[in-house]
Every structure is written in C-alpha cells, then in structure tokens.
Amino acid sequence: MDQQDLRRRFGTLTTAHLADACIRAQLPVRCGPALLRAVVPGGRLIGRASPARHAGSVDVFLEAFERAEPGDVLVVDNGGRLDEACVGDLVVLEAQAAGLAGIVIWGLHRDTADMRAIGLPVFSLGAIPTGPLRLDPRPHDAMDSATVGDWTVSRDDLVLGDDDGVLFVPAARAADLFRLAEKIRDTERRQADRIRAGDSLRGQVRFDSYLARRRETPSLTFREHLRAVGGAIEE
C-alpha cells in the first residue's frame, strides 16, 4: 500500500485493531512502552520508520531528513534516557518542512508549547528543560535501526501511533494486517451496536455455552470459543 492508502485506511482504525490483527496473524505485537505518549492528545501518525540513534547532537536527525521520504516517521533512539531532551521545536519544524508524518522518541523532548503550536504528531516519554550535556561517538550504523523499548525498528517497519500508544508492524505484511484489522473493527462495532440495543455481550458470544463446554473440556480457552462463534473481544 502507498502512503496515501495507509493514511486513509488507518483513519478508520486504531493501534488496538492493528495489535489484535498481529495476534490473529501470529506476528509479534511490537508495542512501544506504555509511557510513550502523544505530546498533543489525539495525535495520530502512520508512516515508514526512518530510524536515528542519538549520540548527543542533532546532526543525526538532519542527516535522517536528507534520506527520508515524505510520509516517513522519524524514530529516535535515545536509549530511553530521562536526564535530557533530545528533540526540540527546531527539529520538529525541520521534520515538518521535510514532509515527515511525525516523530517517535525513545527518550524526552522539550519546547512543548512550541511543539503543540507546530502541530506535527510527536510521541515521547515526556519533557524536560535541558538538552544533551554530552557528545558521544556516533555509531557508524546510527541510521540503520533504532531501539524503542524491547523492539528494534528499521526502514522495513511501519510506525503507527494514536491515543493508545505506538505500534510497529512489518511493512511487507501491512496489506494483510489492515484487512484483518478492518474485520476486527467491523465485528466489534456490530457487537457494540447490539449491546446498546439490549443484546448483552455474554449473550452474543454464547458465554453460557462456553462455560458448559469448559466444564467438559477444561483446556478450552475463551479465545478458541470466540473464534468458533465469530466474536471479537480479546483479538
């Protein structure tokens, strides 16, 4: 899928839908840590990862912008440090001017008020006034990959972000994952409409039948039952 199609289809989905799709597709669910949140609530982004490992200077970001394509997402690896901000308003402005879709920071930012005024989606662990007070040797492969929490991200990955957080998925599987996510979304919407109309969720998923079957087969899981009856709650 191209960037325009990705943005259009993600506009009707959430990262939760895509995370459930990963489970359904038997792929690792590569979520950013829970503290990685949008600087401006309601921010959403999707695009190919443009990784950059920070070593104390913004030059790595500027070089990443030279290589990036419109619609990419800068993924900044600052080791999850909480003692310095590595991205400020000028980097965000430059990312916006370069046509990037947003920034994800495994670390902190600063210039929060200015970032909010700029409007480019930025996700980070939080804010602190000070920038880096160090300048470490830059790895030779600083733009090949970035680590965010437990996961390593490369240009082979898509980055998705919304109010639930950040998710990384393999770009090569995007079409399959979006189809699965859309099916999950549609099933959940039908279930929600039926609950509002008075048809309980327990009734929809035949929960009494599940309890009876589990008494006969203790190893039966609720997910197996849901798949048999066509429900969507857990994935």
Rank of each mutant, 00 (worst) to 15 (best):
141 D>M: 03
141 D>H: 09
141 D>Q: 05
142 A>I: 00
142 A>C: 13
143 M>E: 08
144 D>N: 04
144 D>E: 13
145 S>G: 07
146 A>L: 01
146 A>S: 11
146 A>N: 04
148 V>S: 04
149 G>Y: 04
149 G>N: 08
150 D>H: 08
151 W>T: 04
151 W>P: 03
152 T>Q: 13
153 V>R: 01
153 V>K: 01
153 V>D: 02
153 V>F: 01
153 V>Y: 01
154 S>C: 12
155 R>V: 04
155 R>Q: 12
155 R>T: 13
157 D>I: 02
158 L>M: 07
158 L>D: 02
159 V>N: 03
160 L>H: 03
160 L>S: 01
160 L>Y: 03
161 G>K: 05
161 G>Q: 08
162 D>E: 08
162 D>T: 04
163 D>I: 00
164 D>C: 06
164 D>H: 13
167 L>E: 07
167 L>Q: 06
169 V>M: 02
169 V>A: 01
170 P>A: 04
171 A>H: 01
173 R>A: 10
174 A>F: 02
174 A>Y: 00
174 A>L: 01
174 A>N: 00
176 D>S: 12
176 D>Q: 15
177 L>I: 04
178 F>A: 00
179 R>G: 09
180 L>K: 02
180 L>Y: 03
181 A>N: 03
182 E>C: 07
183 K>I: 10
183 K>V: 13
184 I>D: 10
184 I>R: 12
184 I>T: 11
185 R>G: 00
187 T>S: 09
187 T>Y: 02
187 T>H: 05
188 E>P: 00
188 E>W: 03
190 R>G: 10
191 Q>F: 09
191 Q>W: 07
192 A>G: 06
193 D>H: 10
193 D>T: 08
194 R>E: 15
195 I>V: 15
195 I>L: 08
196 R>C: 06
197 A>M: 06
198 G>E: 09
199 D>T: 13
199 D>E: 15
199 D>P: 00
200 S>G: 12
202 R>F: 13
202 R>S: 14
203 G>A: 10
203 G>Y: 03
204 Q>G: 08
204 Q>S: 11
205 V>K: 06
205 V>A: 07
206 R>K: 14
206 R>M: 12
207 F>R: 02
209 S>D: 15
210 Y>L: 14
210 Y>E: 10
211 L>I: 12
211 L>V: 14
213 R>N: 11
216 E>I: 05
216 E>M: 11
217 T>M: 11
217 T>E: 15
217 T>C: 09
218 P>S: 09
219 S>Y: 01
220 L>S: 08
220 L>G: 06
221 T>N: 11
221 T>V: 07
221 T>S: 15
222 F>E: 10
222 F>S: 05
222 F>M: 15
222 F>T: 05
223 R>Y: 02
223 R>A: 15
223 R>I: 12
223 R>T: 14
224 E>V: 06
224 E>H: 08
225 H>G: 07
225 H>W: 15
226 L>C: 14
227 R>S: 11
228 A>F: 04
228 A>T: 14
229 V>L: 11
229 V>Y: 10
230 G>T: 09
230 G>E: 08
